[in-house]
Nucleic acid binder design. Sequence first.
DNA 1: GTCTATAGCGCGATAGAC
DNA 2: GTCTATCGCGCTATAGAC
Lengths: 189, 189
Amino acid sequence: MKYETRKDEIIQTSAILFQKKGYSAVTMRDIAKSMGIKAASLYNHIESKQEILSDIIMSLAEQFTEQMKIIKNSDDSSVDKLKNIVALHVNITSHNQFGMASLNNDWMHLEVELECYLKLRKNYENDFRNIIEKGIEDNELVNGNPEVILFSMLSTLRSLYLWLPKKEDLDIQKFTNELSLVLIKGINK
Amino acid sequence: MKYETRKDEIIQTSAILFQKKGYSAVTMRDIAKSMGIKAASLYNHIESKQEILSDIIMSLAEQFTEQMKIIKNSDDSSVDKLKNIVALHVNITSHNQFGMASLNNDWMHLEVELECYLKLRKNYENDFRNIIEKGIEDNELVNGNPEVILFSMLSTLRSLYLWLPKKEDLDIQKFTNELSLVLIKGINK
DNA sequence: GTCTATAGCGCGATAGAC
DNA sequence: GTCTATCGCGCTATAGAC
């Protein structure tokens, strides 16, 4: 069976539509039509359109938070921690292509959960930054601007949702290694 | 004077609002309110909401197309061409922070101009890819996967609009150099 | 659990006074 | 060039039959 519950089907169907046009441009009628039912029927399974968005975004934000906690508390070197962060983004994105679009582009349309989301996001970025700064301090990384390094890596990792779907027959493990090489070792010969 | 024409003011004001909430979530009443007039008055200067979006996106797309033509036809090395592309993105983004958000996130809401936009975008990516492939061929760049290199660089450059505004007292030249270093030389010691 | 019907509201855009 | 008033439509969400 493709979906565990009808609510699950609504959320996954919505995520696909939200990726294409964004939360605001997708109507309840669009979602219902994709499922072959009428818009009013959706409300037997969900409270509101807002609840759909909130479910998509917050479950992903919590996955990132949980995994980052494991990575930052490990005994790995800073470079290995960065590689684990790359792998984390590739893994979550490959299992939630569509939801990642909402996480990146539609978080500002959250209502009650907005503040909580922003806090999780800020903490994640701080953990990421601390790992980079520790790597520079320990002479594992070049003595560059940690903000620029953070920005570059995070921008690439946050864009994975746009790019992974294009490579359907992708070997995830191989791709993760290639991306780590480009992001960490650079491209200059 | 801050704006050349009233139409120019509408477009720049809209770009700021589009960055915050996206094209679909911004209403003509929002735009008018930001300018201290009523929504109906906007229509003395523009044809439609769609025209605002189209003006923002297409003028930027044409700037990128024009500058890429100069870069790809120059006699520079591949690495220098890549550095010029970095500088191009930093320059355009620093002068059009808000419009770059629409270029990245709201292009799918274009109507008559959608096809033209997609063509310009595809050509731009092809030119970028060719420069990377030439660099690998000539042994200037490491023998990595050119698609992964393209993806990583383009993701970072396309996210600049999110990041440049946070660094208000930024030395553009210095930042361009730092970013080129990170993207091309990598961060590993 | 899905349907039809519809409430209540806000949207983009237009008409016409000033 | 801006205003008030309004049209026609589509939106989220609800009520109640089946």
